[in-house]
Design a binder for these strands. Structure first.
Length: 875
DNA sequence: CCGCAAACTGCAG
DNA sequence: CTGCGCTGCAGTTTGCGG
């Protein structure tokens, strides 16, 4: 069988890249790394024997501590599908089976089959280079829908062994099978018996068998050195029955067998006492093999001893090189040089190194982390035209805004990323006063950043090959929980209405992500605890079945929630794609449109802080009564709108007819939409559009209000209702309610966040209610059933749950307003500057989550910090 | 000195 | 014939202002 040797491969790759801009940049990066190493060596030269001894003592101490905490009680499995994308494509297209093929494009490959790997064709290699290595290479475009489908099949099997398994990607997951093994011990053989019933024909299976043998012959023997106990990888002829044992190896073998039966794809697995080792193990007998490190101290140390550091997840090319310059290539050497490393690297880094050298890793999941940023970027052929660049920037903002809104996120920091034709990357960031999520808001910031960069290089034009936009610093959604619990009682009282309680009482559940109801159904075991989510992301959602209070999750439980969220997100996306035409009120109206002429002048005239994107960027206001996003900062318009809302509240709920409300709103939106469309034609016009006229008196009122320019407290002279609305809207605490998006129930948490400050427990209810996909609260009702509002107890003439929920919102918010009017005057703290609240909150969050800054000069980025490992541990 | 934001880097999949 | 991705996280460095 043909193939290429390593030298030849390297030579071809070099020749293909040499002289290119990319290559030049690579060389430049390499020189930078070398400089880093040089600096490190200089430091090393200065280290005294005494320092080293002291450091050694510290290392010993920490090692002992870590050793004491070593947990060998868990059996962790890392499963990795073999050449996943390629394998799926080969399965579905038999002609590809005996050809070298890869999945991806001419510019980048995602993966390649084992056939192609013999030519040096690898993942993350550009297709055109792969073609030089292997001219016969077939490149198949990616088909993620297909991979997702297969992935979910595989995950179903995973959940039989660990319902809380942790998926890392479509083709990879960690499982904790400790509990499974305990149960399995007592299982009768019949429960571990599987019949080989493949949909494949015998010939097909034989063909596969041949291929497997073929590959085995051609690949390095080390790669295929299987664990002693591993049984033949391919199923026996049809009709046969396989009985798997009860030990860990047998359980994993059974799992792999089932995967292959179900998908005809093979997987590799690693079994070890922690995730770090399991991951390394899964690679050991790839493809279609498994390897186990027994849960014994000596076995772990034996394995770790000769393990190349590069094999460990988190040690990349640069770290490998830096360690290599200190003569460290294996984990044993890593351990021997820990004292030195502790003097040369940051605390975070050397702690990580120490863990690796001891063969330690996490044995359970850290708490589910929330998303920290969202971005989109695009590579293209050289672009120097300014107009084009701005247009692209806007396009990216648009895409990003859509994604943000889909997840109900708003962030304060906008980052622009640029890569020029020389592959030099620059990022420019700006942090706004208020969190944003709409196209116009993001673009307003991004275009200023772009302009700054254009100015910076002028008179030369910016020659770009990539542009990206990122939003981060999402508003804190924590600290809302107690209140959310308190709403339960309230809602239950309301929910006792026969109309929706008779079938099955509405149930509150906490979910990690808003839209996770549907996928949950697919899961095999539906125990209560497994659905409960960690505190910090509790959201109440109605479901059928019975009331469940939130509980702390243990171990891998959170993982499942994350997976559910992922899956549901996928679903949501698909749904979104199908319903491309949104109602007119969906698009949050742009801010730039709404900014008055004075604003425009502001941005253009000055260069100080005031003209920064934050200052020039108007924020969107949200009506505190009906919670609709105004899409404008025109306070006059908002006031008028609130007046209407309030006057309706006085006359009673039934008057706040959902229908009329919507009509009115869509009228407003039509207006705004027109403006927006006009504006999109020219990026410069963004600041030049004034909102619909305002009277002089109104204008005065507006100017009295706090602006993001000063961030001061609102003037006490403003009308009650206005200061209220300002607090809600400007502070970013009110959920922006994209009433358009059926999938978004998003921002409820933010609202309760706000209300928690107000100490108005009962008032929070409605926000939680409009969450679920189907419209929220009473998603249980059957078609045609009349719905009765739990607040005003009036039957609603609508079948549409989202409308109904909105009505409930309105009712409840009117209650809130009433209560606030009765008990709170602006003087007793309700007018506290929302900016201030946000800011202090942001602070406290960061404090909790970020490790102390390191003082060490040279450090390597490490993915897993020791803090993280400890967090889940006994400390 | 601290805290923060910005800019940049490394890493994984 | 050309020609090296996208997303997200975490960590480090630097400069600023209190």
């Amino acid at each position: 069988m043909e193939g290429l040797d390593r030298d030849k491969i390297n030579k071809i790759i070099l020749e293909a890249s040499k002289g290119s801009k990319f290559y030049e940049n690579e060389l430049k990066k390499e020189r930078q790394v070398n400089q880093r190493i040089e600096k490190m060596m200089q430091q090393k030269a200065k280290i005294t024997e005494q320092q080293l001894q002291k450091a050694q003592a510290e290392v010993y101490k920490l090692s002992a501590e870590l050793e004491m905490r070593r947990d060998l009680s868990r059996v962790i499995v890392h499963v990795d599908m073999d050449a996943f994308y390629a394998a799926v494509e080969m399965r579905d297209c038999p002609e590809l089976r005996d050809k070298p093929m890869a999945v991806g494009s001419m510019s980048m490959l995602s993966t390649s089959n084992y056939h192609a790997r013999r030519f040096g064709v690898r993942a993350a290699m550009p297709g055109f280079i792969a073609k030089r290595l292997c001219p016969n290479l077939v490149i198949v475009p990616t088909n993620f829908d297909k991979y997702r489908a297969v992935s979910s099949q595989v995950r179903e099997i995973f959940s039989d062994y660990d319902p809380h398994f942790l998926p890392m990607s479509l083709d990879e997951a960690y499982l904790d099978i400790t509990d499974h093994l305990e149960q399995r011990e007592h299982w009768p053989a019949s429960r571990r018996t599987y019949r080989v019933c493949s949909s494949q024909t015998v010939e097909e299976r034989e063909g596969q068998m041949l291929e497997a043998e073929e590959e085995t012959d051609n690949l390095s023997p080390v790669l295929f050195e299987d664990s002693p106990t591993v049984s033949p990888t391919l199923p026996e002829p049809a009709g046969d029955v396989i009985v798997f044992g009860t030990c860990a190896e047998e359980a994993v073998r059974e799992m792999r067998f089932r995967i292959e039966q179900k998908t005809t794809l093979t997987a590799s697995a690693g079994i070890a006492p922690n995730m770090m080792l399991a991951k390394v193990c899964s690679d050991k007998n790839k493809p279609n093999g498994q390897y186990r490190i027994p849960s014994e101290h000596q076995a772990v140390m034996d394995f770790t001893k000769d393990l190349p550091v590069r094999k460990v997840s988190g040690i990349g090319k640069v770290t490998e090189k830096m360690l290599g310059s200190l003569d460290i290539t294996t984990c044993a050497q890593l351990g021997q040089k820990m004292a030195l490393l502790s003097l040369l690297f940051s605390e975070t880094s050397w702690h990580h190194f120490l863990q690796i050298s001891l063969g330690l890793g996490s044995t359970h999941r850290e708490r589910d982390s929330e998303r920290k940023s969202m971005s989109t970027e695009r590579t293209f052929s050289e672009m120097s035209d300014l107009e084009e660049q701005y247009a692209l920037c806007r396009e990216l903002c648009e895409d990003l805004a859509q994604d943000l809104q889909r997840e109900g996120l708003k962030g304060k920091t906008v980052t622009l990323k640029l890569k020029n034709v020389d592959f030099e990357v620059r990022t420019r960031a700006f942090t706004l006063q208020c969190p944003v999520c709409t196209t116009e808001e993001i673009f307003a910031a991004a275009k200023d950043l772009l302009k700054a960069e254009v100015d910076h290089v002028s008179p030369q034009p910016l020659k770009l090959r990539l542009m990206g936009v990122r939003v981060s610093s999402f508003i804190n959604v924590e600290e809302k929980k107690p209140l959310q619990k308190s709403i339960v009682g309230f809602l239950q009282a309301g929910g006792s209405d026969p109309n929706h309680s008779q079938r099955s009482a509405p149930v509150f559940r906490t979910v990690a992500d808003k839209s996770s109801e549907s996928p949950r159904k697919e899961l095999s075991s539906e125990t209560g605890e497994q659905e409960d989510k960690p505190k910090h992301q509790n959201r109440w959602v109605i479901d059928s079945g019975g009331f469940r209070a939130p509980q702390q999750q243990s171990f891998f439980q959170r993982v499942q929630s994350r997976r559910l969220a992922e899956e549901s997100e996928l679903k949501a996306r698909e749904e979104n794609a199908q319903t491309s035409n949104r109602p007119t009120d969906t698009k949050p109206v742009t801010n730039a449109d709404a900014s008055g002429p004075d604003k425009a002048a502001d941005t253009k005239s000055s260069t100080n802080q005031e003209s920064s994107p934050a200052a020039s960027m108007p924020q969107s206001l949200t009506c505190p009564v009906c919670f609709r996003q105004m899409g404008t900062i025109d306070l006059t318009a908002l006031n008028r709108h609130i007046d209407k809302c309030l006057s309706e509240s006085v006359t009673g709920c039934e008057k706040t007819s959902i229908d009329t409300g919507q009509e009115r709103w869509s009228d407003v939106c039509e207006e705004k939409k027109d403006q927006e469309e006009e504006n999109t034609t020219s990026s410069d016009s963004c600041h030049s559009k004034a909102t619909p006229s305002t009277s002089e008196g109104d204008r005065a009122l507006v100017q009295d209000l706090p602006s993001k320019d000063d961030g001061e407290k609102p003037s006490t002279s403003v009308l009650n209702s206005v200061s209220f609305s300002t607090e809600f809207g400007r502070g970013g605490l009110t959920p922006s309610r994209p009433n358009h998006d059926r999938n978004s129930n998003d921002c409820d948490s933010h609202a309760s966040d706000h209300l928690s400050h107000e100490s108005k427990p009962t008032s929070v209810a409605p926000l939680k209610m409009n969450s679920s996909n189907s419209g929220g609260v009473f998603s249980q009702h059957s078609k045609g059933t009349a719905l009765t509002c739990p607040v005003c107890c009036k039957p609603q003439e609508t079948d549409d749950l989202s409308l109904f929920n909105r009505h409930v919102d309105v009712c409840l918010n009117q209650r809130v307003l009433q209560e606030l009017r009765e008990t709170d005057s602006p003087a007793n703290g309700n007018t506290e500057d929302p900016q201030h609240i946000l800011k202090s909150r942001g602070k406290s969050k960061r404090k909790g989550s970020s490790p102390p800054p390191s003082k060490k000069p040279r450090a390597v980025g490490t993915r897993h910090t020791i803090d993280k490992f400890f967090r889940g541990g006994s400390r």
